[in-house]
Design a binder for these strands. Structure first.
Lengths: 255, 255
DNA sequence: CGATATCTTGAGGAATCTCAATACTAGTGG
DNA sequence: CCACTAGTATTGAGATTCCTCAAGATATCG
C-alpha cells in the first residue's frame, strides 16, 4: 500500500465550506475594464462592447487560505477567473490519498469543463480573489460570441497538453526530476507575470508539492535539500527558492 | 534513477515512419454514411446535409501494427478518426523513457488539439484503420458549423477529466490498484462497444500497459499473476483476460 | 514569547525496479 | 506436422528508490 498521507486524511474532518467574504464592489462601474488579469484570461477574447455583457454578470469574491472553492461532485453553478493568489485543484481517493492536478494563478480559468457537476475540488492556497460568473449566464454569452468558445477550446487544448506533460512526470520521472521540473514551471509562470524568473515564491506547502508530484512531504524536502547542497538552489526561508544554477536545474529536470 | 526500459529505448533505432497503405476507396460515394463509428465520433455532431461537406474531404488509411501515425513535434497536417483498432499516444523523455498518455479506439478522435504541431506521438498497436481529415479543411468546417466546435469542446472536457483521473492513478495508486483500474477501464470501453464486459482482449503488450501505468513490464506481469491467483481474473493466453470476480476487481481498483 | 503548524533530518522498511533466466506463443521453413 | 526462431511474457533474486515512522528544528501567529 501507498501512504494515506495525514494531511490528505485531514480533509475528511475539514470544517464545512468556509463562506466566501464577498468584496463589497458589485456597484463598480466596470470591473472588467480595470481587471488586472484581463489580458491573460478568457476575457481577452472579447472586445470592448462585448465585454459589457460580461461585466454585467461578474462578481468578485475573496477566499481565505485553505477555503474550499468548489467540491468534486457538487453542482457547478459558477465559473471563476483567478484574479490574484493560487488555487489548487485536486481529486481524492476514498481513503484520503490526494492528487493535486493543477495550481491555478492569476488569469487562469476555473471551470473550463462546463460540466453540470464539478469534476474536481478546488481550494485556496493563500488568500485568493476570484471573479465569479454564473454558469448559465456565461453559457448564454458563449452562444452569442463564438470567439469565446474558440478561446475555451484553445485553453482546453493547452490544459490537455499540460496534463500529458504531467502524466509523463508522474509516471516516468524520478523525485529529483519531478522537483526540478516543478520549480522550473513555477519560474516560467512567474516570468510570464513579469516577475524575476530566478526567484520563486512557493505559495503552496510541501504537502501541496508532494500531492502534485506524487511524492511524500519528506521526499520533497530531502530533494530540495539535495538540490541546495548541489549548489543549484538557495533557500531564503522555506518558501522562497532562488535558482542559482538554472542550467543545472534544467539538466536535473531532464526534459 | 528510473529505468530506461529497453522497449522504449528501441524507439531511437526505430525504422523510419512506415508508409500507410492507403485503401483504394477514395471514390466511395459517401464514406461517412456507411461509417461504423459515426455515432460515436465527432461526426455525430453533423446532420445529413452538413455531413456531405465532411464526406468530401475525408480519406481512409490503414496502418500495420507498430506503424507511427504521427510524431511529436511534426507539423499537424491531418486529424484522424479511429475506425478500427487501437492507437497509443505517448510522450518520450530524451533518454527514451516513455509515457503512454492514452489508448484510442474506434470512434475516438486523434488531434483534438488543433495545434500546428503534434503535441505527442501516435502509433498503431495492432492493425488500425483511420479516417483522415486535412486539418485546414476541417478548420473551415468548424467555422461553418459551430456545433462541431461545441462538440470538440465537450470532447476536450471529457479528455481533460480522464487525464486528471489518470494523474490520480499515476501519482497515488499502487501497482495493484493501477492494473485493476486499467482492466476495468478496458472492460467499460468494450461494453460501450457492445462487447461482453467480462472478457477483455488486450490489444497492447505488457510494455504498453507498463508505459501507460508508470510501471515496468515485470511489475505488470507479476500484478496480473497475483490477481489471477486471488481468483479475480482468469487468463486465456496472455492477451485475453476474463474478469471472474468483478466486485473484487473494483475493490482492488480502490476508486 | 509561547503554542502550533510546518519543515527538515534520520533510521529502517516496503514496493517497485533491475538484471537474468526460463517459459510460452506465433510464425517459418524443413 | 514438427522443429526452429524470434518475440513476448513470466518468474526469481537482489538492488534501489521512495515511503513510513519518529524526532528535532524552524517558522508563524496570536
Amino acid at each position: 500500500m501507498l501512504m494515506a498521507t495525514p494531511h490528505a486524511a485531514t480533509r475528511a474532518s475539514r470544517a464545512p465550506l468556509v463562506a466566501p467574504r464577498r468584496a463589497a464592489e458589485p456597484a463598480l462601474p466596470d470591473p472588467c475594464r480595470t481587471c488586472a488579469v484581463r489580458a491573460l484570461s478568457v476575457c481577452a477574447a472579447l472586445k470592448g462592447a462585448e465585454m459589457a455583457g460580461l461585466a454585467g454578470i461578474v462578481g468578485r469574491s475573496q477566499y481565505p487560505a485553505g477555503a474550499t472553492i468548489m467540491m468534486e461532485g457538487d453542482p457547478a453553478d459558477h465559473l471563476f477567473n483567478i484574479i490574484e493568489g493560487t488555487v489548487q485543484i485536486y481529486r481524492l481517493l476514498p481513503d484520503g490519498r490526494r492528487q493535486i492536478t493543477g495550481f491555478l494563478m492569476g488569469g487562469d480559468f476555473l471551470g473550463l469543463a462546463l460540466n453540470d457537476t464539478n469534476p474536481y475540488s478546488a481550494e485556496a492556497v493563500g488568500t485568493v480573489s476570484l471573479c465569479r460568473l454564473p454558469r448559465r449566464r456565461f453559457e448564454q454569452l458563449i452562444d452569442q460570441f463564438p470567439q469565446l468558445e474558440r478561446r475555451m477550446l484553445v485553453d482546453a487544448s493547452n490544459e490537455l497538453f499540460a496534463a500529458q506533460e504531467q502524466m509523463l512526470l508522474l509516471g516516468r520521472k524520478t523525485a529529483r526530476e519531478k522537483v526540478a521540473t516543478f520549480l522550473l514551471m513555477l519560474a516560467r509562470r512567474a516570468a510570464r507575470r513579469g516577475k524575476p524568473d530566478d526567484e520563486i515564491v512557493l505559495a503552496m506547502s510541501r504537502a501541496g508539492i508532494g500531492d502534485y508530484l506524487g511524492l511524500t512531504i519528506e521526499t520533497v524536502s530531502r530533494t530540495i535539500t539535495r538540490l541546495r547542497r548541489d549548489g543549484i538552489l538557495a533557500l531564503h526561508g522555506a518558501n522562497r527558492v532562488e535558482i542559482v544554477d538554472r542550467e543545472a536545474l534544467e539538466d536535473a529536470a531532464e526534459g
